[in-house]
Amino acid sequence: MLNFILQRLLALVPLLFIVSLLVFSLVLIIPGDPAYMLAGEDATPEEIAAIRTDMGLDDPALVQYARWTAGVLRGDLGTSLFSDQPVLEVLLERLPVTISLAAAAIVFSLLISIPAGVIAGTRPGSIADRVVTLGASTGLAIPNFWLGLMLILIFAIWNGWLPATGYVPLSENPAAWLRHILLPAFTLGLSAAAILTRQLRGAMIDVMNQDYIRTARAKGLAWRFVVLKHALKNAAIPMVTILGLQANYLLGGTVIVEQIFGMPGLGQLAVASVFTRDLPMIQGVVVMAVFVAVFVNLLVDISYGWFNPKVRPQ
């Protein structure tokens, strides 16, 4: 198992190399001069030149890239142009918010998609199946920011059942955390739930026609038991792959959802940094997001072996 994980990590090296190139190249495509922005409008050309030298902007791109990468590898993501705080510090402060939001969204999407997918997939063509399929298409088409606003309108403004904005750490007050995370997680998780439902439905239809389902029935096992044990574990194999892909989308979706629900996470930071043109911070957010995404996909790969023994490392 350790070997397997090491192999996976090694395979990531070229990928991360290309990713680092892409992230770094953001500096190169940026129109205008970061030193000019940093120095402010009243700066003299000498001041700007000094800042340029200071930031190493006069060096060739390759040297800048090497310096930046070396910094990233040491955990030094630079300093925020806006607040002068180290980027990594700010990111680590906000990471738990985004992680708990994304995790809650995944849990929520599984809670919806597993029952819905199983019900639809074991009775294809039935009324229940049609309702689920239509619901899934609608769930995919609804923009998440709009859904979030509607939820705020209904549950916070009109009924006052749940808070509209804010975030309380899980470690501080679990009940308050849940109340704050419920609407954002629903908002973020709905499209993932829709995709997973469609996927699971298709996989269940496929699996239910397999010979081993008949074998399980021939052993005297009840239909429900066969569905939940024998069919679901096999149908989960493609679902796990999709879940890995969805983790990426969910991380992206936090940008919008955190904005709506006023959650101090990475996504909100990314948007705020765009308006302050805080490039090191944006690069930091992207690096951190890719790091999390890659880590999640590694976890997915590992869990894949449990569902599908054929790919399990010997």
Partner: peptide, 12 residues
């Protein structure tokens, strides 16, 4: 390109 969380890449 696909390993980036899409919306974050777009924002960047």
């Amino acid at each position: 390109l696909m390993s980036f969380p899409p919306l974050i890449l777009a924002v960047a």
